[in-house]
C-alpha cells in the first residue's frame, strides 16, 4: 500500500530532520511507528501523506510512484490517504462548524450529494451526537474536536489512514474511543494504517507490528 524507500527530508537545505529512512505498510496492515519527540517521525508522516516533498528517496503509494506533492499531486492519489494530526485545535479551520469541517473534503471534491448521509454516518461512528455538529470548533472540547478531525479524515474513504500522534493530547477514554472508531473503519474497508506515536503500550495494542525509530530501515 505504502512504500517509503531511503527517504531524506527536512525543512532547510542541508539540514535534513530524517535521513535515509525506509518503511513499508502492506495492504490492510496496521503499522505503528514509535519514536521520541523531535526525531522526524511527523515529517515522515507528512511525506507519506504527500504533504511534504522529500529531498531524496521514493514514495510508492497504492502502486503509483509519487512524483509531485501537495497541490501538484493528483487529487485521486492525495485523497487515497487520510490524515489526523496531534493537535485538533491546529488542524481544524476555526471558522467552520463541525458538520462543515467533516463535510469539507466532500465539498472540495465535488461530492456534495453524499454530505448528508456520510456526515451523519461518520458522526455516529466517531461518537459525535446531539447538537455538537452545529457547533463551532471553539465551542467543543479537544476530544470532541479530534473526533471530528478523525471523521473528516475518513469521509473520502481513504485506503490508508495516517494518525500522527492522534491521541497524544487526549485522555484514556477518548483515546480508546478514537482507536475503536479507526479499527471499525478498517474492519469494514480493509484500509491500511500508519500510526505514529511515542506510547509503546498503545501502539503495541493497536497495531499489527510496531517499528521503532531507532531501526526503521529494518522494516
Amino acid at each position: 500500500m505504502l512504500e517509503l524507500s531511503n527517504i531524506t527530508a527536512g525543512y532547510e537545505r542541508g539540514k535534513p530532520v530524517l535521513r535515509d529512512v525506509s518503511l513499508a505498510v502492506a495492504r490492510g496492515e496496521a503499522v505503528g511507528l514509535l519514536g521520541p519527540s523531535g526525531c522526524g517521525k511527523s515529517t515522515l508522516a507528512r511525506v507519506a501523506a504527500l504533504l511534504h516533498r522529500p529531498d531524496a528517496g521514493t514514495v510508492v503509494l497504492d502502486g503509483t510512484t509519487v512524483h509531485d506533492y501537495r497541490h501538484r499531486a493528483p487529487r485521486a492519489l492525495r485523497t487515497t490517504v487520510g490524515v489526523v494530526f496531534q493537535s485538533p485545535r491546529q488542524s481544524a479551520d476555526p471558522r467552520l462548524r463541525l458538520r462543515d469541517l467533516i463535510a469539507e473534503p466532500l465539498k472540495a471534491t465535488g461530492r456534495r450529494i453524499e454530505i448528508r448521509e456520510r456526515v451523519d454516518e461518520l458522526a455516529h461512528a466517531v461518537g459525535l451526537g446531539g447538537d455538537l455538529l452545529t457547533r463551532g470548533a471553539h465551542e467543543v472540547s479537544d476530544g470532541q474536536l479530534q473526533r471530528a478531525c478523525l471523521a473528516r479524515a475518513l469521509v473520502l474513504r481513504p485506503r490508508l489512514l495516517i494518525c500522527d500522534e492522534m491521541t497524544a493530547m487526549l485522555d484514556a477514554s477518548t483515546t480508546a474511543a478514537l482507536v475503536a472508531a479507526v479499527e471499525a473503519y478498517r474492519r469494514e474497508t480493509k484500509a491500511s494504517l500508519l500510526a505514529v506515536g511515542h506510547d509503546q503500550v498503545l501502539l503495541d495494542r493497536w497495531c499489527d507490528r510496531t517499528v521503532s525509530w531507532a531501526a526503521p530501515s529494518a522494516a
Partner: peptide
C-alpha cells in the same frame, strides 16, 4: 488504558 481492556 491500552494496558488494560482498552475499552472506552
Amino acid at each position: 488504558l491500552p494496558e488494560r481492556s482498552f475499552r472506552p
